[in-house]
Design a binder for these strands. Structure first.
Length: 271
DNA sequence: ACATTGACCTGGGAGC
DNA sequence: TGCTCCCAGGTCAATG
């Protein structure tokens, strides 16, 4: 489900409700996520305050008094703020109950998500330490991408989805960015020119920024922390638009599989 | 070092 | 209605 814009939307949605709040109680109904939730999470988090919430790629980092809670939403994870005593529904695996009464609830049908505790700096955590650059920062630029594609024979779509190179670009935004940059997703990464890298970097920054502004993309079940869908779905140019007219040239949008993932593009606009 | 594939899960929709 | 099959926003681990 969630790519960088959806995770960032979630971060912004929950922050006002949990910042500077103290955890009163923790409920773990099912610890079996991608990695098990540590069995002493409730003891660890008791009376800790959330000082800050940051994001690294698709990971949310809750800075607590004594360490960090690392949360990944996987494919179907959602965080929401529960204001009243709403009954827990199916797949509500974990919740943090704060002393002011609000609840941060983690729901994840497929359980590909993760909730991990670490006392070391999270950027040193094994899952985070080898991550590539943040796409919206200045160190993601044409020369960096051009350097990274050298001798890489994977397709350019696979390469921009590789978190060791650049974080946060998932299956939706990879197709969208390549359309904006007028580059075929099937091109071998190493065949891109510096100029094409320039266009692609700009396109990735543009599509991610726009998607954050729209509150992310809801295909079927992504919801913001306030329960509303993300509105970027309405602005998708190629994703899930198979056989409909390209919005630039009118030719039908193509849908192929690349590395087992649905990939959408315009055969006429993209070279 | 690089590239490919399977694996982890549940739920929804299509087709019969 | 019910069964089977395929698909889904991620990414790690194993293999060649």
């Amino acid at each position: 489900m969630p790519e960088l814009p959806e995770v960032e939307t979630t971060r912004r949605g929950i922050a006002p409700h949990v910042l500077n709040q103290t955890i009163k109680k923790v409920i773990v109904r099912n610890p079996r996520l991608r990695w098990p939730i540590t069995n002493n999470l409730a003891v660890i988090l008791h009376k800790q305050k959330i000082k800050k919430i940051t994001r690294r790629g698709k990971y949310l980092l809750l800075h607590c008094d004594k360490g960090f809670l690392i949360i990944h939403l996987g494919m179907s994870g959602k965080l929401s703020i529960v204001e009243n005593k709403l009954m827990a529904r199916k797949h509500d695996h974990c919740e943090l109950i704060f002393s002011h009464g609000k609840i941060l609830r983690f729901n994840d049908p497929r359980r590909f998500g993760a909730i991990l505790w670490t006392e070391a700096h999270p950027h040193q955590h094994p899952l985070l330490k080898n991550l590539g650059v943040e796409p919206l920062l200045k160190n993601f630029h044409k020369n960096y991408l051009y350097q990274q594609i050298q001798n890489k024979n994977v397709t350019i779509k696979q390469l921009i989805m590789d978190g060791k190179i650049v974080v946060g670009v998932g299956n939706i935004y990879a197709s969208e960015a390549l359309f904006l940059a007028k580059i075929l997703p099937t091109r071998a990464a190493q065949t891109l020119s510096l100029q094409e890298c320039d266009r692609l970097v700009a396109a990735i920054k543009k599509v991610l920024t726009r998607a954050i502004k729209a509150g992310g993309t809801t295909l079927k079940d992504f919801l913001q922390a306030n329960g509303k869908p993300g509105y970027f779905s309405q602005k998708l140019l190629v994703y899930q638009r198979e056989a409909t007219p390209c919005l630039d040239c009118g030719n039908p949008i193509q849908n192929i599989k690349l590395a087992q993932r649905a990939t959408y593009y315009c055969f006429s606009c993209q070279k």
